[in-house]
Design a protein around this nucleic acid. Structure first.
Length: 220
DNA sequence: GCGACAG
DNA sequence: ATCTTGTCGC
């Protein structure tokens, strides 16, 4: 798997993959669900991906990958910065997840190819984008109660959902990644939500990445 | 040219 | 994302 190292090549890659994204409902309820996230320290990126059993949201396993950063953070090109390490971590898993949640957008992206959609196409797996803030699109503030959501719009099209995962807290931005649709994505995110704003598997990946970062920091 | 801008 | 202490609120 080759990754571009500059904006020019990255744009070409996005152009070649953007039309390969497929949106349709998940055929069956997932058995295993995973989530990925990353942390940074010096010139390295720490990718963490954890797998949960969908029924009852039970933790099963996690994998970690640490490698050098090869691309800067540029809005709209997050995949090229975090994708390489995250994909490696996903490939190390013993349990193949039925759907993967990403900390970022799915199709709610300027080119319709956020990190969730991009990696979904690369791995040919169902993926969901669950970002903590908006990248593109307009919306009305959703109701203040957990579970309430409003549509994220772009050119008259619904590209995602602004979902309240807890009462009176900032909403998250959910969008279909690949091989799934918005309704199913929202249902899954709601199912994975405990008493925190961030879905449990995603929160787990975040904590693991940060914990590894802490260890790498105190090099003994 | 100006403002926006996932992590 | 990351840098950072205490602090207000459920």
């Amino acid at each position: 798997m080759v990754w571009p190292l500059n904006i020019k090549d990255a744009k070409a890659v996005q152009e070649g993959l953007r039309h390969k994204v497929k949106i349709f409902p998940l055929s069956k309820q997932p058995r295993y669900i995973a989530a990925a996230d990353a942390a940074f320290i010096d010139d390295k990126i720490i990718a963490a991906v954890c797998v949960y059993k969908y029924q009852g949201i039970e933790y099963l396993e996690h994998e970690i990958v640490v490698r050098k950063i090869t691309f800067p953070y540029i809005p709209g090109y997050l995949t090229f910065r975090e994708g390489p390490a995250i994909v490696e971590a996903i490939k190390k898993l013993k349990t193949i997840p039925d759907v993967i949640i990403f900390d970022g957008q799915g199709i709610a992206h300027p080119k319709g190819l956020g990190i969730a959609s991009h990696i979904g196409v690369l791995l040919d797996m169902p993926t969901i984008g669950c970002a903590k803030s908006r990248l593109t699109g307009t919306f009305k503030e959703p109701g203040q109660r957990k579970g309430q959501w409003s549509r994220l719009m772009c050119n008259g099209k619904t590209i995602g959902a602004v979902l309240r995962t807890r009462d009176n807290v900032r909403p998250v931005f959910v969008s279909a990644g690949h091989k799934i649709d918005l309704k199913t994505s929202v249902d899954i995110i709601v199912h994975c939500t405990g008493n925190y704003r961030i879905p449990l598997p995603q929160r787990c990946a975040d904590m693991i990445a940060k914990s590894v970062k802490k260890d790498l920091g105190k090099r003994v």
